[in-house]
Deep mutational scan, measured.
Amino acid sequence: EFILQPIHNLLMGDTKEQRILNHVLQHAEPGNAQSVLEAIDTYCEQKEWAMNVGDKKGKIVDAVIQEHQPSVLLELGAYCGYSAVRMARLLSPGARLITIEINPDCAAITQRMVDFAGV
């Protein structure tokens, strides 16, 4: 995967993360976080594997957030924003999600994903 990915990106003209974002923009409903998550899950199941938590493990994350109702949540590494959208949609009003992503391209994609999801 890591050796072939740059070749695939070159042939496709963009990165996997950008392709995931484009899929979301084309297939998800703006302002609907659940729709965004479903679009990412569908893309990763049908098109390309991606390094995200996914729906199965995501339900565990959901349960922890719902049980503890944090007022501040810190995410280290956002990748394409799946977990940020997943967690933010469950936060109480006034709660904050702080996401740190070292890769500026992934940070920009995450910001667009979060904005599109409306969270």
Rank of each mutant, 00 (worst) to 15 (best):
E1Q: 11
E1K: 15
E1D: 11
E1G: 12
E1A: 15
F2C: 14
F2S: 12
F2L: 13
I3T: 10
I3L: 10
I3M: 11
I3V: 12
L4R: 06
L4Q: 15
Q5E: 06
Q5R: 12
Q5P: 11
Q5K: 15
I7L: 14
I7F: 12
I7S: 14
H8D: 15
H8R: 15
H8Q: 15
N9D: 10
N9K: 15
N9Y: 10
N9S: 13
L10Q: 14
L10V: 15
L11F: 08
L11P: 09
L11V: 15
M12R: 10
M12I: 08
M12T: 12
M12V: 09
G13R: 08
G13S: 07
G13A: 03
D14V: 11
D14G: 14
D14A: 09
D14E: 14
T15A: 09
T15N: 11
K16E: 09
K16M: 13
K16R: 12
E17K: 11
E17A: 14
Q18H: 14
Q18L: 08
Q18K: 12
R19P: 10
R19G: 11
R19S: 10
I20L: 12
I20M: 11
I20S: 13
L21P: 00
L21Q: 11
N22K: 06
N22D: 02
N22I: 00
N22S: 10
H23D: 00
H23L: 00
V24G: 00
V24M: 00
V24L: 00
V24A: 00
L25V: 07
L25M: 04
L25Q: 11
L25R: 03
Q26R: 02
Q26P: 09
H27D: 02
H27Y: 01
H27L: 02
H27R: 08
H27P: 04
A28S: 03
A28T: 04
A28G: 05
E29K: 15
E29G: 06
P30L: 08
P30R: 15
P30T: 11
G31E: 09
G31W: 12
N32T: 10
N32Y: 14
N32D: 08
N32S: 07
A33S: 10
A33G: 07
A33E: 15
A33T: 08
A33P: 04
Q34K: 12
Q34P: 13
Q34R: 14
Q34E: 12
S35T: 07
S35G: 05
S35I: 09
L97R: 11
L97V: 01
I98F: 05
I98V: 04
I98M: 05
I98L: 09
T99N: 09
T99A: 05
T99S: 02
T99P: 04
I100M: 08
I100N: 03
I100V: 10
E101A: 10
E101Q: 08
E101G: 04
I102F: 05
I102V: 02
N103S: 01
N103K: 09
N103I: 01
N103D: 02
P104A: 07
P104L: 04
P104S: 02
P104T: 03
D105H: 06
D105N: 07
C106F: 07
C106W: 09
A107G: 04
A107D: 06
A107S: 09
A108G: 00
A108T: 00
A108S: 09
I109M: 06
I109S: 03
I109V: 05
I109L: 01
I109T: 03
Q111K: 07
R112W: 03
M113K: 14
M113V: 05
V114L: 03
V114E: 07
V114M: 01
D115E: 02
D115N: 05
D115G: 01
D115H: 07
F116C: 00
F116V: 02
F116I: 03
A117P: 04
A117D: 13
G118R: 03
G118D: 05
G118A: 09
G118V: 08
G118S: 02
V119A: 05
V119M: 06
V119G: 06
